[in-house]
Design a protein around this nucleic acid. Structure first.
Length: 257
DNA sequence: ATGGTGGGGATCCCA
């Protein structure tokens, strides 16, 4: 099963890219972030025409997440973090073919020390508590999404700029990510690749994509129980080359066949 | 330190 994560930065704008990419890449499961669509506007009919069922939790203008699955049922759908009151639509989870999939749009955090940064750390702690429960109930777990955290220096183009005091790379954010790993979750990409300089997000400004000035912040984590079945992982840069692209590229992991 | 670009929707917020 090929399982992917893609921050589309407006599904309204990116629907042609998504449909093209579904045809080209043929993922079995996809988690989308930043759909920026209210649920009644979600294009589930278009996606059904391509063989994908979808579930979604959206809102106008900001955030919004969805899970798609091709030729498979989507069961036990959970939107939001249980017990964590939050108006922002950043989480959707479901079970597909015996694998629990948790799709996260992690808070960006703006700048270290801001109110949004504090919210990011609170939010990640709530996610950690919930994932501990999810792992007990569903040992075969994949946690994917836009984490808005670059795990280590290999995942940034310039570690001097993206340092322990900078948003997306600060020591508190990285420590929060390590606490997720400590639950028994593994960066799928790093199970197969040790290289530096492979990124999933490039700023729209300063021709960052052309110059490969990016970060790897879109992650696919696999649980202990799935680690041995993780056959491959990667990032598909192709959609980032298309006209009017999302600033993110899809990250994927293959579990089993 | 600043401001660069893009999406959404309202003339500014968020990334």
């Amino acid at each position: 099963m090929k399982i992917a994560s893609w921050n589309v930065n407006s599904l309204n704008v990116r629907l042609p890219h998504l449909t093209q990419w579904l045809r080209d890449f043929g993922p079995d499961v996809v988690g989308l972030q930043e759909t920026k669509l209210e649920d009644h506007k979600f294009p589930d009919d278009v996606l059904a025409g391509l063989g994908y069922r979808s579930v979604f939790a959206g809102q106008k203008t900001y955030n919004g997440v969805a899970l798609l699955a091709r030729d498979r049922a989507i069961a036990e759908v959970q939107a939001g973090i249980p017990g964590f009151d939050d108006e922002q639509k950043r989480v959707i989870a479901a079970t597909v073919d015996g694998v629990r999939i948790v799709n996260l749009y992690v808070v960006n955090g703006q700048d270290v020390g801001t109110e949004k940064y504090a919210y990011k750390l609170r939010w990640l702690e709530a996610v950690r508590g919930w994932l501990a429960e999810e792992l007990r109930a569903h040992p075969r777990l994949v946690v994917l999404g836009d984490f808005n955290i670059a795990p280590d220096d290999r995942d940034v183009h310039d570690p001097a700029v993206w340092n322990d005091g900078h948003i997306l790379t600060s020591s508190d954010e990285r420590a929060a990510l390590q606490r997720l790993y400590a639950l028994g979750l593994h960066d799928g990409y790093r199970l197969h690749h040790a290289d530096a300089g492979v990124f999933s997000w490039w700023d729209y400004r300063q021709a960052a994509f052309r110059r490969n000035l990016g970060l790897r912040i879109d992650l696919t984590l696999v649980s202990d129980a799935l680690r041995g079945a993780t056959a491959a992982a990667g990032i598909d840069r192709t959609p980032r080359t298309w006209e009017r692209a999302s600033d993110h590229a899809p990250a994927w992991v293959q579990v089993g066949d």
